[in-house]
Structure formats: structure tokens, C-alpha cells
Design a protein around this nucleic acid. Structure first.
Length: 116
DNA sequence: TACAAGCAATAGT
DNA sequence: ACTATTGCTTGTA
């Protein structure tokens, strides 16, 4: 939508998207865990791949949060209304958040590593 | 093909 | 809070 040229789906991105499909409704993963699942040691590369996710929302990029349980980014932004939307989507799937915007302590069992 | 710069992060200091 | 490091993409030549 926001890009002029379609983004090339490289083998790396393909792996990211396929692994993400293994995260069920009601669960979330992190950039680092998702990376480890596909043998990538750079969480930033994961974020960059998701940034241009051409299969949204079929590939649930909103289920990827940061290791410190904060929300990370969404749709190219790290704060603002886009992040609020990401939070609402997750709340609709059963997650709850603390006032500081992190996943509530009682909900952290929902953070999983996708099995590949 | 080669090189530089950027990115939705994270660990260490 | 700040810096270094990370791996992959994208742009420029």
C-alpha cells in the first residue's frame, strides 16, 4: 500500500513468515525467539522483514513483541496510534497489558517460541 | 558486483 | 540511559 514497488520475498523472509504462521491465536513470540527458530541471530533483520510483510494480516505480524515484553513496532512505527492498534488486536486475542504498555505478568506464559 | 547506509532489536556497560 | 553489535535489505555506482 505504502510502497511503490512490490517487495521481493527472499528465502529469508519466507522463513520468517512461515515460522510466524506457527504462532496460534492467543499466543505471541518475540523478535529474538522467532529469529532463533529459523537460525537467524539478528532480531533487527526479523523486524525489517516484518516491516514490509506483504501477507498481512494472514501472516500475524502483530503477534511479535520485544524481548522485554514491550510491544516493539508495528507498520513501520514504534509509537503512536499504530502501536495502540497493535495492542488492541492483541487484547482482542486474550492478552492483557500493564499500564507501562508491557504484557501483564500474569499473561507472559503466552509468549512462546514457534516450532519449526 | 561492491560498498555504504538503514532497520518494527538486544545485550552489555 | 547509552553504546556496540547484529544480519539482512535496499540504494547507488
Amino acid at each position: 500500500m505504502s510502497r511503490k514497488h512490490p517487495i521481493k520475498v527472499t528465502p529469508f523472509r519466507r522463513k520468517v513468515y512461515l515460522a510466524l504462521l506457527k504462532v496460534p491465536v492467543g499466543y505471541v513470540t518475540t523478535y529474538a525467539l522467532l529469529g532463533k527458530a529459523i537460525g537467524c541471530r539478528s532480531p533487527r533483520a526479523i523486524g525489517q522483514a516484518l516491516r514490509g510483510n506483504p501477507f498481512a494480516p494472514r501472516v500475524p505480524c502483530h503477534r511479535v513483541i520485544a524481548t522485554d515484553f514491550s510491544l516493539g513496532g508495528f507498520s513501520g512505527h514504534r509509537s503512536g496510534p499504530q502501536i495502540a492498534r497493535k495492542r488492541r488486536m492483541l487484547e482482542a486475542e486474550g492478552l492483557r497489558f500493564d499500564a507501562d504498555g508491557c504484557v501483564a505478568l500474569s499473561e507472559r506464559w503466552r509468549v512462546i517460541a514457534p516450532r519449526v
